[in-house]
């Protein structure tokens, strides 16, 4: 079987209150998800500025996923509702510019959903791996 040379780099922005704890739970339960997922903890998913997403791609990420509390469960009451609008607009714009839509994703993962976290990451990594290297939002200076 041909081994796929390229191992994608995934940046996952996880909200401190739900998704980060969800990732922890996934670890505690020994659930596997690829080590290529680099988690960045943020106080709330709405802390994620669209610039963060682009910067992650610039610095070599092949996929960016943002995880937050389920709608209605935000620790700060409404942060993730804003996230939802912002990311819908941003992802749609990236798609408009021809950047593969599978490279970006927003998911709601609660602190109790370790299994969902692992499954989400596995699925996301698989999709991004299928796309191959990020060529459309890359900065060659960071690639060498």
């Amino acid at each position: 079987m041909q081994v796929n040379e390229h191992k994608p780099l995934i940046v996952a922005f996880c909200c401190n209150w739900c998704s980060y704890a969800g990732a922890d739970l996934a670890g505690n339960n020994r659930l596997n998800y690829p080590a290529d997922v680099k988690i960045i903890r943020v106080p709330c998913s709405c802390r994620v500025n669209p610039m963060f997403v682009l910067r992650a791609f610039q610095r070599g990420a092949d996929g960016v996923i943002i995880c937050g509390c389920h709608p209605g469960d935000c620790h700060y009451t409404s942060g993730n509702y804003y996230t939802r609008r912002r990311m819908a607009a941003l992802f749609s714009m990236l798609d408009f510019l021809g950047i593969e839509r599978e490279r970006t994703r927003l998911e709601w993962v609660s602190a109790a959903e370790g299994a969902k976290f692992a499954a989400t990451m596995n699925d996301f990594v698989e999709k991004v791996t299928a796309l191959g290297e990020n060529k459309r939002l890359e900065d060659l200076r960071c690639k060498r």
Partner: peptide, 12 residues
Amino acid sequence: YTTEDLEPGEVF
């Protein structure tokens, strides 16, 4: 926002 907004995935 509204609580019924679209998910980014649903946009596509």
